[in-house]
Simulated assay, not measured.
Amino acid sequence: MQFETLQKDMIAAMKARDKVRKDAISTLVSAAKKAAIDEGCRDDIKEELVNRVILKEMKSVKEQIDTCPASREDLLAEYQTRYDIFAEYAPQMMSAEEVEAYITEKFADVAASKNKGQIMKAVMPELKGKADGSVINQVVQKLCQ
């Protein structure tokens, strides 16, 4: 996701007077700016950084949804709406089949060792932000059998 796209969508939400959407996108914009400042690239916010921030924010909202008491339906609805808006901007994750194909193609030598620790150590940095960790773990488990 391009940072400029987020900013344009936030402005569009403001013009449409859609407060919920504007607030959700505003959260992503501020988190991306903060992460960029922390990493020292305030003027040039990379797509990879924005994607990482979106996934982090989605995880935090998912935790809020999971820990919210069932009696607080208003909060639950608010969190779910925010999660859905974040999901629109989240990068598409690789499927298990895609992860397996990627590992067997790029890491054939390590995968041949059938050592789960070595495979995970080699694969995780490459697939971070591109595939869910649990999916990667399942695929590696399958390859080690």
Rank of each mutant, 00 (worst) to 15 (best):
F3M: 02
K62D: 13
L6V: 10
F86N: 03
A131Y: 07
A111N: 05
V50K: 07
T67K: 09
D18F: 04
I136G: 02
D74C: 00
A13W: 04
K33D: 03
A12S: 11
N137M: 09
A32D: 01
I119M: 10
A122W: 02
S113Q: 11
C144I: 07
I103Q: 09
S60I: 11
I103N: 07
K130W: 07
Q7W: 06
R72M: 08
I65H: 09
K34P: 00
S134K: 13
K22W: 03
K8G: 00
P69I: 08
E88I: 06
Y102Q: 06
P125R: 10
P125D: 10
A108K: 15
I103V: 14
K33G: 06
T81I: 09
Y102N: 02
S71E: 14
K62W: 02
V20Y: 04
F86T: 08
Q92I: 14
C68F: 07
D38Q: 13
S60C: 04
Q118R: 11
Q138V: 04
F86G: 00
S134E: 13
E57Q: 15
D43L: 08
S71F: 11
G40C: 02
I119C: 03
R21N: 02
A32G: 06
E73K: 14
L127M: 12
R72T: 04
A12E: 09
D9V: 05
D132T: 03
K128V: 07
Q138D: 13
V53F: 08
K15N: 11
A36Y: 02
S30M: 08
A96H: 01
M120P: 04
E73T: 13
I85L: 11
E97M: 06
I54Q: 01
E88A: 06
Q2G: 07
K33Y: 05
K128N: 13
A112R: 10
M10E: 12
I65R: 07
M58E: 08
E100D: 10
K114G: 00
Q118I: 04
A31E: 14
G40F: 01
A16Q: 11
I25H: 05
I65Q: 12
F3I: 00
S30C: 08
E126P: 01
K142R: 15
I85K: 03
S95A: 06
C41W: 02
K114Q: 09
K59I: 00
E4I: 03
V99N: 10
A16E: 15
D74W: 03
A122H: 05
M93S: 07
Q118F: 09
S95Y: 05
K46D: 10
V110Y: 07
L143M: 15
I25M: 10
